[in-house]
């Protein structure tokens, strides 16, 4: 079980952040991802594996300013 954007979800431990983002419809070029309060560097999205108990926050950016 992991917590993603405040919701407990199962079935994602062992996936990479990049896999999770693309499977969930996020554009990896338009997000910022934090895990347990620290940023996950963009270059690590493919390597960083989601582990049980982690709290992940994905901020998805939209245009306008």
């Amino acid at each position: 079980m992991v917590t993603i954007n405040g919701k407990e979800v199962s079935g994602h431990t062992g996936s990479s952040i990049l896999d999770y983002l693309t499977q969930s419809g996020y554009d990896p070029a338009k997000v910022a991802v934090e895990c347990d309060g620290g940023v996950i560097p963009r270059k690590d999205y493919a390597d960083k594996v989601i582990r049980d108990g982690e709290i992940i926050e994905i901020v998805s950016f939209v245009g306008g300013g």
Partner: peptide
């Protein structure tokens, strides 16, 4: 203005 630039800046700052 653009979503990609917003994401770029926030990631650059946090990293």
């Amino acid at each position: 203005d653009s979503a990609a630039n917003k994401a770029m800046l926030v990631n650059a700052a946090m990293e």
